Amino acid sequence: MSIQGKPRKVVLKSTEKFPRATVWALRVVALVVVAPVAYGLAHMGFSPLYNQSHNHVKTCTIKSAGIARTGTKSYNHTEYLYIATTDCGYLRFRGSKQGLTQDEFISRINSYKGQKLDLAFGDWQLFLSDPEVSAVDFGD
């Protein structure tokens, strides 16, 4: 109470550095932006190694194999080896070419056109992307 008998207004200062709304907004941004970026970078770096030892084999009928190129400039592009199959769809190959050059590997796969091959699908796949194949068993 003050001297004149009126109650005094008490103002409490916040000990928080950031308001709660700001903290929650930062958490949402981290969840929506940072987590997918971190997952994508981890997938690019570690999935080929992981999928070499953690995979399951499916038998697929080969239609063709070839190179898919992303980017418009010759100095700024990425090439992916794709395998088209009749029963497994379009597959992106990310694995060992078994000592063959890229062209030799593609020719070898194309020599099995209309035939079935055992393909090893890695267990670590990205959501809503083409399935990744980590190995091809030619039966040799």
Rank of each mutant, 00 (worst) to 15 (best):
M1K: 12
S2K: 13
I3Q: 15
I3H: 15
G5R: 04
G5E: 08
K6M: 09
P7M: 12
R8C: 14
L12D: 13
S14Y: 09
T15G: 10
T15P: 10
F18I: 13
F18E: 13
F18G: 06
T22P: 05
W24E: 08
A25K: 04
R27A: 15
V28Y: 12
V29C: 04
V29G: 01
V29E: 01
V29S: 09
V29W: 08
A30D: 05
V32K: 03
V33E: 07
A35M: 14
A35Y: 01
A35D: 00
P36H: 13
A38R: 04
G40D: 11
G40P: 01
G40F: 05
H43V: 09
H43T: 08
M44W: 06
M44T: 06
M44G: 11
F46W: 06
F46L: 12
F46Q: 00
S47Y: 09
L49E: 15
Y50K: 04
Q52G: 12
S53Q: 14
S53L: 13
H54L: 02
H54E: 10
N55M: 02
T59S: 14
T59W: 00
C60E: 00
T61W: 03
K63H: 04
K63T: 15
K63Q: 15
I67D: 06
G71A: 11
T72M: 15
T72K: 14
K73Y: 13
K73S: 14
N76P: 00
H77D: 12
Y80N: 02
Y82I: 14
I83R: 11
T85L: 03
T86P: 04
T86V: 12
R92V: 04
F93S: 01
F93M: 03
F93C: 11
S96R: 12
K97A: 08
K97T: 12
Q98L: 05
Q98Y: 01
G99P: 04
Q102K: 14
Q102W: 02
D103V: 12
F105P: 11
F105N: 07
I106V: 01
S107Q: 15
R108D: 04
S111L: 08
S111W: 05
K113P: 00
Q115L: 00
L117C: 01
L119D: 02
A120R: 02
F121Q: 06
G122Q: 01
D123A: 13
L128C: 08
E132G: 03
S134A: 07
S134V: 10
S134N: 03
V136G: 07
D137I: 04
D137C: 07
G139R: 10
D140T: 10
